[in-house]
Design a protein around this nucleic acid. Sequence first.
DNA 1: AACTATAGGGAACGTTCGTTCTCAAAGCAA
DNA 2: TTGCTTTGAGAACGAACGTTCCCTATAGTT
Lengths: 191, 191
Amino acid sequence: MDPDNEHGHVIEVADRLFYERGIQAVGMAELRREVDLPLKKLYALFPSKQAIVFAVLDRRHRIWTAGLQRRIDDAADPRRKLLAVYDYLADWFAEDSFRGCAFINAFGELGSQSPDIAERTRAHKESFQQVLARLVADAGGNPALGPQLALLAEGAQTTAAISGSPEAAQQARQAAEILIDAQLRTAPGSV
Amino acid sequence: MDPDNEHGHVIEVADRLFYERGIQAVGMAELRREVDLPLKKLYALFPSKQAIVFAVLDRRHRIWTAGLQRRIDDAADPRRKLLAVYDYLADWFAEDSFRGCAFINAFGELGSQSPDIAERTRAHKESFQQVLARLVADAGGNPALGPQLALLAEGAQTTAAISGSPEAAQQARQAAEILIDAQLRTAPGSV
DNA sequence: AACTATAGGGAACGTTCGTTCTCAAAGCAA
DNA sequence: TTGCTTTGAGAACGAACGTTCCCTATAGTT
């Protein structure tokens, strides 16, 4: 395995472990065992556990955001683009490995101790707000709609994680339809 | 201080520390210092740190739920009772000490390692869903409305915690008004 | 073949944690 | 006062953590 792959492999494995069991619950010894690298090499690739945590979160953000954008791009019109957000959530919640938003989890676990994690969480959520704001603006909708749709999405993530059931995505989607139809230029139910 | 007060005092102080900085970040030595009790007495009052954590969460649930119910009881009619939920959130978010929902934080931190914490979190959120479901039923609204309003409230909690700003409560309230007016018997805007 | 530089594998280090133990001081019954 | 039980205060314990260090074995160069 060349160095680049080793680097990426560590991040992938760490992501899975951190997401499944929490960051503090996974030790460097266990990560070392799972990636099958000597500790020395692990510390040659990353200066500290914290650096791995940051790399994991940054990768999560990129993958999640890209997946969302793909869903949005595939939708035909503004209304469907907004609703595509909840279809994306539905697919995510249905994954066996789903255990909530990794950023919310990390924030709850370490946000009060690590300003860097708090800041990354804020940036991730802010980026989501921007995506929605842009979609709402493109559709000529009331600017208040973006944050409202974001609340539904955030609530669905925590509710699905805690309840262990994916139905929150559909509930959020139905609520979103009502909010959209009430505040978008598109005539209600026209799509 | 009599034993009952000592018991309650430990729970109060532990709640503040856990909520401010996370459960794992607060050690028994620090808690002992803050409550000014010998470690031995602490372990006479509670068999373990875990028992303190459970007592803290149970107390949080009782206080939060009672405060919510008081707000609801003070509202005059079904529509206002539903909206009172978001006024309650607004007051909560505005507190200096607000740092999100303690259950969501505990779930993110320890939910995957402690089935008891996961279960208490589920029960807390389920109880909130029941309160909303009852209000919606009393108002003769569409049963789907309850979970939708819950999503807005949950999303507002995490959003307010992460963004550090309380405006999510108002955004949730405005969205709730739209959802309520679309799905409640009460004529839109009649209250 | 001999020497050197590198890398594997894991022991060791220094902390910190939850929990228990020690031990002296203090209260109290006789 | 004497003996006995309970308490305060914190040292001690065993485990686990992130990180560093040591030693051996190997690979490469001459």
